[in-house]
Design a binder for these strands. Structure first.
Lengths: 108, 108
DNA sequence: ATAATGAATAGCCATATGGCTATATAAATT
DNA sequence: AATTTATATAGCCATATGGCTATTCATTAT
């Protein structure tokens, strides 16, 4: 989880994920193309994504193809969702309670 | 977005968010209680969460109350969701295509 | 066999991170 | 007024980060 969120906390890596989502499996070079960074920099980013399990590396000869792995994305998404919705539910209950109290106000 | 994901990339901070989701607004001290870390460390974590917009600080005298802020959580969640579902959709279309091709195989 | 290509590794740099202690600030208590 | 309490700030440390260049490794092309 730490690794997933950390990997997502960088714009370059998020853009790489976006590319994979749009275009399917891409090579390291293809993933590099939109950015003006040195090749080893991309190599590092890819290793971060791989260690987080967000991408899977398929080695075909000298070209490394990267595939998006949705399971950890889903886990991260679910973590956020659980906590966000729980809290929003609490807010709603609170709101109802306050409204109900407002209705009662005159009667006290 | 960078800030949100980065803030979520630390277990202590995620646990603090979980506490806020469960218990509503909490003070810095309350948020510190489950962890065995020095007070300034929590202060730093709270600043990270605040700068990411994930929490709002309400100063009441000498106690700082922290509230969970769902908007950036929702944005982060949506970002993941968009890319994950897009890619899963692509996989499904691919699967259908492969299945269809399998069906045709004999006829060639 | 040689050259060219795709990617990884090594090693460096500046900056950021999460942790600490010590101290300061601010507000509530006595 | 003095003390205690809640939090922040300053400053230090070790480690991690994202970037680079130079080099290496492995594979494909000539």
């Amino acid at each position: 989880m730490d690794r997933s969120f950390h990997a997502l906390g960088d714009g370059t890596r998020r853009e790489m994920i976006a590319m994979l989502a749009r275009n399917g499996a891409l090579s390291a070079n293809e993933l590099r193309s939109p950015f003006s960074v040195a090749q080893p920099t991309i190599s590092k980013h890819l290793k971060v994504l791989e260690k987080a399990g967000l991408v899977r590396r398929e080695i075909n000869g000298r070209v490394h193809l990267f595939h998006l792995e949705t399971a950890p994305l889903r886990e991260a998404e679910d973590w956020i969702s659980r906590h966000r919705t729980f809290w929003e539910g609490t807010l709603q209950r609170l709101e109802k309670f306050v409204n109900a109290a407002d209705g009662q106000e005159d009667k006290t």
